[in-house]
Simulated assay, not measured.
Amino acid sequence: MEYQYPIDYHWSTEEIVDVINFFQSIENAYEKGMGREELMAAYRRFKEIVPGKAEEKKLCDEFEDMSSYSAYRTIKKARESAANEKIVMK
């Protein structure tokens, strides 16, 4: 895809990499499916970096505007799924 991930330049390099990993996990859920545990681990790390709901919503909305992939719907589906299930979005 040809777009930029929403990031905060105040984050460390490691945090930027981890946030990008989270958004790539959302992409994977749409494009080929993603293991629930791996997806939730990426989300938990994302929440360590972006603990506030308002900032999370802002970043996820920016990502959805650019990619058309909903982080909110993906994480909601993962939370409702069984432990070892593969998350496949449409």
Rank of each mutant, 00 (worst) to 15 (best):
Met1His: 11
Tyr3Gly: 05
Tyr3Thr: 08
Gln4Tyr: 13
Gln4Leu: 15
Gln4Val: 14
Tyr5Asp: 03
Pro6Tyr: 05
Pro6Ser: 01
Pro6Arg: 00
Pro6Lys: 05
Ile7Asn: 06
Ile7Val: 10
Asp8Cys: 12
Asp8Leu: 11
Tyr9Ser: 08
His10Gln: 13
Trp11Leu: 02
Ser12Pro: 01
Glu14Lys: 11
Glu15Lys: 05
Val17Leu: 12
Val17Asp: 13
Asp18Thr: 03
Ile20Lys: 14
Ile20Val: 15
Asn21His: 12
Phe22Leu: 01
Phe22Arg: 00
Phe23Asn: 00
Phe23Ala: 04
Gln24His: 13
Ser25Trp: 04
Ser25Ile: 02
Ser25Pro: 08
Ser25Leu: 08
Ile26Ser: 00
Ile26Leu: 12
Glu27Cys: 03
Asn28Trp: 09
Ala29Tyr: 06
Tyr30Glu: 01
Tyr30Asn: 01
Tyr30Val: 05
Glu31Leu: 10
Glu31Asp: 05
Glu31Arg: 12
Lys32Cys: 11
Gly33Ala: 11
Gly35Trp: 07
Arg36Pro: 07
Glu37His: 09
Glu37Ser: 13
Glu38Leu: 15
Leu39Gly: 02
Leu39Lys: 06
Leu39Pro: 00
Met40Cys: 12
Ala42Thr: 04
Ala42Pro: 05
Arg44Gln: 11
Arg44Ile: 09
Phe46Val: 01
Phe46His: 02
Lys47Ala: 09
Ile49Asp: 00
Ile49Cys: 00
Ile49Asn: 03
Val50Lys: 03
Val50Trp: 01
Val50His: 03
Val50Cys: 00
Pro51Ser: 08
Pro51Arg: 05
Pro51Ala: 02
Gly52Ser: 15
Lys53His: 10
Glu55Pro: 06
Glu55Met: 12
Cys60Asn: 02
Cys60Phe: 07
Glu62Gly: 06
Glu64Ser: 11
Glu64Thr: 06
Asp65Asn: 13
Asp65Pro: 06
Met66His: 13
Ser67Lys: 07
Ser67Ala: 03
Ser68Lys: 15
Ser70Ile: 08
Ala71Phe: 05
Arg73Ser: 14
Thr74Pro: 03
Thr74Gln: 02
Lys76Cys: 04
Lys77Asp: 10
Lys77Gly: 01
Lys77Met: 13
Ala78His: 06
Glu80Met: 10
Ser81Pro: 07
Ser81Thr: 04
Ser81Asp: 05
Asn84Pro: 04
Glu85Leu: 09
Lys86Asp: 10
Lys86Cys: 15
Lys86Ala: 14
Val88Gln: 15
Val88Gly: 04
Lys90Pro: 11
Lys90Gly: 06
